[in-house]
Design a protein around this nucleic acid. Structure first.
Lengths: 95, 95
DNA sequence: TTAAAATAGTTTATAATGTAAACCTATTTA
DNA sequence: TAAATAGGTTTACATTATAAACTATTTTAA
């Protein structure tokens, strides 16, 4: 019942979890927005977004706003499911 | 309000979190009990218990049961506070 | 008008971390 | 008495997280 199931290592990471948490509520967010909200460095954020994308948890779209590059992220269905499963699992550890 | 405060790295670890979770409910547990419940290897558990002890989150007592070594762990007040703070913080990420 | 600073990131190097394999010592069993 | 079991610890390795350094473009200041 309250067995400790493995916690998805992709989500059990402070910054990636914060990113997913944000993406769940806004459903589309810019790189700079995520950077500000998570108070992370750009380098760290860039790396972690890549990992989430490679896992299929988020989609990253690169475009331009005016003349400047613009990176936009949104959560996928796979990502949403994974997040929910992670939270459900985690509850057995903290409740 | 829902800022992402840093998650205590000592607790944001699958095995250590499971151990703390167990110790909160039983308040005294043997090495082998923790090993079984967490389904960890002895080596891994040994290392993680050391870290928790060095942080002052648990107390480890070594004795003998009959002729065999017996390692008993219990959570400290510091550990309890840290766990509660961790969980409180974590809620901002997952709720 | 060109040097400096800012924007929006990516790549790379490093340090920390988690994990299991290998190891140790004593005890029990065959 | 040899082999297996109990109860761990130490160590080596591979994975990670993180920030520093870097790239490329654009805006601002002198």
């Amino acid at each position: 019942m309250s067995a400790f199931k493995p916690l998805d290592p992709l989500l059990h990471s402070q910054l990636r979890l914060a990113v997913m948490s944000l993406l769940i509520s806004v459903e589309e967010a810019e790189f700079t927005f995520l950077k500000e909200k998570t108070e992370s460095t750009a380098g760290n954020l860039s790396v972690q977004l890549d990992k989430l994308e490679k896992a299929g948890y988020i989609e990253i779209e690169k475009s331009f706003r005016g003349k400047r590059p613009l990176t936009t992220c949104k959560i996928t269905q796979v990502g949403l499911k994974a997040f929910e499963a992670y939270v459900e699992n985690l509850r057995n550890y903290i409740e």
